[in-house]
Design a protein around this nucleic acid. Structure first.
Length: 477
RNA sequence: GGGCCGUUAGCUCAAUUGGCAGAGCAGGGGACUCUUAAUCCCAAGGUUGUAGGUUCGAUUCCUACACGGCCCA
């Protein structure tokens, strides 16, 4: 590092600038490569190109040196010859360090060994790299460093760069799909006077001028449905939610969520659109993994999904003790939990979710688990809700939205009782939301999709930290 | 929260039973005008995560802590 600093200082003393302002007229390296695809070995052209990027490798230092330069699009070999460049410029090339950002002007040739290269006419240092790059062929393997210093990971790993490009394509494809279907993208408050729309503990923060606390949103659901009341009919929001909970391979405290709501539809319409959306996205990113998004997704009721795997009929045992007894009878471990929904969640999470590798929609949930879903049109005690799973992971949660304000009020009251009994994830009572429902909300279907998990699924990533650029970490020691 | 594993040079990794802490790459000096994990020669690079303990002697054994990973709750 000291040597690199000295080179930068020496350059300044000689009137040079190790950090110039710009370098205009750059071509993507991939374009240069494809423009000379057919060039024969040993053949030279008159074709001039200007490219810029980071220096990755260097070979030879006599009268000729080969350098590898890469940008976002690709990697190209540079040939520096003292005869052609002149002594001074060649010395400048010798002074470059791996990791330096440079701009070059060169002439396209193919070497005798068949490598398309730019024969250098001029080289400009665009930014001196004062710190050494990771190992040029082992890359950066330390997981902790890859997450804490993602820029190093991106410098060292084309796979890492590709993954985040894919993530961007996923998001672009989602927007394209929903926009074409007549949805409008909206932005609702991140700072909310009252949080809601999911079972989670919030972050709190303080607004000085108003002298009051705000919550960082845990979901966009309730505001988006107020827009449905307002007549926007088809809305979506793609943005960050925040949940003040543990960190795990599937959980980051801030994460990206897509929610959409459409008037005059229900959860089955939503299920079809979800399949179409994911199929569209997989196609756009040219997905070639193990998951089959093309065929119709498997569909099972929640009750059947548990019954077939555990032999326990949750609907035949609608209270905590009865279900616990039945689980025991089937030889299943019964956690020390207080409520029936927690036992159902245990069965689902432990015994069903890990089995759902190919995309599967589980539908018709107990009302106790779903304070914003509409009662089932034919099954008492159930609501019209589904969750979509793939690769053993929940990726989506949707319902026919509860639009009866009086029923919604009863659900909030029941949540209030749960909260009083110590449930920290119970929904707070939201009078502003009820007032909106009293204005009249059309029958509506809505959904939330975890974008980080969808990207995990589409890129075969095992942890959310692989698909979030800067995952949450403890302070370094 | 519990259990197990890891933490050694800028990066990737070694180090026998507790006995002088090593290599490759990167960086420094030198040779080399078709190399592509370039090659060759020379020199340098370390508070072994932190704090204690045991010992004549600790990267190695013990304890605590920090960070990370995996599993469990």
């Amino acid at each position: 590092m000291a040597a690199r600093r000295e080179k930068a200082d020496a350059m300044r003393k000689q009137g040079g600038e190790p950090f110039p302002h710009s370098f205009e007229g750059v071509e993507a390296i991939a374009e240069v490569l494809s423009a000379h695809d057919g060039l024969a070995d040993g053949e030279e052209t008159e074709s001039k190109h200007r490219v810029a990027g980071r220096l990755a490798a260097r070979r030879g230092q006599g009268g000729a040196a080969f350098l590898d330069l890469y940008d976002r699009s690709g990697r190209i070999q540079l040939l520096a010859q003292t005869d052609h460049l002149g002594e001074e410029a060649f010395e400048a090339v010798r002074d470059l360090d791996l990791g330096d950002l440079i701009g070059v002007d060169g002439t396209a040739i193919r070497t005798k060994r068949g490598q398309l290269s730019l024969k250098l006419d001029a080289v400009t240092l665009l930014a001196k790299s004062l710190r050494p790059p990771p190992d040029k062929h082992h890359g950066l393997k330390d997981i902790e460093t890859r997450y804490r210093r993602r820029e190093l990971d991106l410098i060292a790993s084309e796979d890492a760069r590709d993954l985040f490009v894919t993530r961007a394509k996923v998001i672009t494809a989602i927007r394209g799909f929903l926009d074409r279907d007549g949805f409008i993208e909206v932005e609702t408050p991140v700072l909310q006077p009252l949080y809601g729309g999911a079972a989670a503990r919030p972050f709190t923060t303080h607004h000085n001028a108003l002298d009051r606390n705000f919550f960082l949103r845990i979901a966009t659901e309730l505001y988006l449905k107020r827009l449905i009341v307002g007549g926007l009919e088809r809305v979506y929001e793609l943005g960050k939610d925040f949940r003040n909970e543990g960190i795990s391979p599937k959980h980051n405290p801030e994460f990206t969520m897509l929610e959409w709501y459409e008037a005059y539809s229900d959860y089955m319409v939503i299920a079809s659109r979800l399949e179409d959306l994911v199929r569209h996205v997989a196609k756009e990113i040219e997905y070639e993994g193990e998951i089959d998004f093309e065929s119709p997704w498997q569909r099972e009721s929640l009750r059947d999904s548990i019954l077939s795997r555990c032999g326990v009929d949750i609907l035949a045992h609608r209270d905590r003790d009865s279900l616990a007894k039945e689980m025991e009878a089937k030889g299943l471990e019964v956690p020390k939990t207080d409520t029936w929904p927690q036992l159902v969640d245990e069965l689902l999470t432990k015994h069903v979710e890990p089995e759902l590798i190919q995309p599967t929609i589980l539908f018709d949930y107990p009302v106790e688990l779903s304070p914003f879903a509409k009662d089932h049109r034919s099954e008492p005690g159930l609501v019209e809700r589904f969750e979509a799973y793939a690769a053993g992971m929940e990726i989506s949660n949707a319902f026919s939205e509860l639009n009866d304000p009086d029923e919604q009020r009863r659900r909030f009251e029941s949540q209030r009782a749960d909260a009083a009994a110590g449930d920290e994830e119970a929904q707070p009572f939201d009078e502003a939301y009820l007032r909106a429902l009293e204005q009249g909300m059309p029958p509506t279907g809505g959904i939330g999709i975890g974008i980080d998990r969808l990207v995990m699924l589409l890129t075969g990533s095992k942890t959310i930290r692989e698909v979030v650029l800067f995952p949450a970490m403890r302070d370094e020691s």
